[in-house]
Simulated scan of single mutants.
Amino acid sequence: MTLRSLLLSAAATACALPAMADVNIYTTRQPELIEPVMAAFTEATGIAVNLAFVQDGLVERLKAEAGRSPADLVMTVDIANLQQIVDADVIQPVESDVLTAAIPENQRSPDNLWFALTERARIVYASKDRVADGEVTTYEDLASDQWQGRICTRSGTHNYNLALLSAVIAHHGEEAAREWAAGIRANLARKPEGNDRAQVRAIWAGECDISLGNTYYMGQMLADPEQTEWANSVRIIFPTFEDGGTHVNVSGIAMTKAAPNREEALQLMEFLVSPEAQSIYAELNSEYPVLPSAEVSELVASWGSFDADTVDLTELANHRPAALRIMEEVNFDG
């Protein structure tokens, strides 16, 4: 199903209610990545959505505005950022049977403070020429001597890698996680630098054979003529933990404490977990919907399927301080 038909389907099937007020959203996501799904909501309900892109200082802004904040909702990525919003005490719990029925338990706050909307897997990008099928199977194996001098990755202290290391802690404990991080560091082909796409470029250039990265970057690279060749030089592999599945992280949404338009904001939150909206949102970002019944895009489906790890994301957030300490102790970026 095309994006246009999904938009029309969402408008046709959603329950249209008379507009009472706008919904105001602070988001760290680029507005163009979420505007189409918001347009579908407005067309279905008559409720306008105002997006404010807040790249830095989101929590500080909400704390400063306190009860005067015009923001009804916050949309951001990564469990670390969602937990930071929780810790700042600037959001409120949302009781909704629609949300709890749609979103798996491990992908929403146990106290209903935040809810995942899409997920992305942290996978391995592997050279099509230099890495054989079946050569990468588990995250644990990445620390083995087999990969000495063959791995590229971004900074170990970036949220994406800290979340992955937090998952290692959840599965194996801190000492084993320290050994794993040290093993990955020993296998690096170069000092950590750049973003996830820069690692794929390094594989294309022959500097390394595999890299850690998020799935949606493949979609971004294929959409950029300057990066398409990099993308075509690798394939996506979904490692698993020895006692679990493939590590995933999420984008999510929460309602602010101030929320001047709570009823309309809740209506939008529930719309965003409908099958139509989930498919639109996930396709726009080359991500996976959290709603099991929603369709993935044709491109994302072409990368293959995986079994997501079931570790609770709140547990990963709780392990983040230990993960950061371990990365610093092993001098991962040094």
Rank of each mutant, 00 (worst) to 15 (best):
M1Y: 03
T2C: 05
T2H: 02
L3R: 05
A10Y: 00
T13F: 09
A14P: 14
L17C: 15
L17H: 14
M20Q: 15
M20C: 14
T27F: 09
R29K: 08
Q30H: 11
I34R: 04
E35Y: 00
V37K: 00
M38N: 01
A40V: 02
T42L: 08
E43T: 15
A44W: 10
T45E: 11
I47V: 14
A48G: 12
A48I: 13
V49G: 03
A52T: 12
V54C: 09
G57H: 07
V59T: 13
R61E: 07
E65M: 01
E65L: 01
R68N: 05
P70S: 04
A71N: 03
N81I: 00
I85M: 08
I85Q: 02
V94M: 04
S96I: 02
L99C: 05
A101T: 14
S109D: 15
N112Q: 11
L113R: 08
F115Y: 12
A116C: 11
L117I: 13
E119H: 14
R122Y: 15
I123R: 00
Y125D: 02
A126Q: 08
D129M: 12
V131D: 08
G134I: 03
G134Y: 01
V136R: 03
T138Y: 00
Q146I: 14
Q148V: 10
G149H: 04
R150W: 11
N159G: 11
L164S: 05
L165I: 03
S166W: 06
A167D: 13
I169R: 05
A170F: 04
H172K: 10
H172S: 14
H172N: 13
E179T: 09
W180V: 06
A181I: 01
I184W: 01
I184L: 04
A186W: 02
N187W: 00
L188P: 07
P192H: 13
E193H: 10
A198H: 15
V200Y: 12
R201S: 04
A205W: 08
D209Y: 07
G213Y: 04
Y216V: 06
Y217S: 14
P225H: 03
E226R: 08
E226L: 10
T228Y: 05
A231V: 07
S233R: 02
R235P: 11
R235F: 03
I237W: 03
T240Q: 00
T240I: 05
F241P: 01
T246Y: 09
V248A: 07
N249F: 08
I253N: 01
M255G: 03
A265N: 01
A265S: 00
L266K: 15
Q267E: 05
Q267S: 08
L268M: 06
L268F: 03
M269F: 00
L272G: 01
S274A: 07
P275T: 15
Q278N: 12
Q278K: 14
Y281C: 01
Y281K: 00
L284D: 11
Y288Q: 13
V290L: 07
L291W: 00
S293F: 02
E295N: 05
S297D: 02
E298A: 07
L299D: 12
L299Y: 12
V300Y: 08
V300G: 04
S302R: 07
S305I: 12
S305C: 09
D312L: 10
L316P: 00
H319C: 11
P321L: 15
A322F: 10
L324Y: 09
L324G: 09
I326S: 04
I326P: 06
E329F: 02
F332K: 12
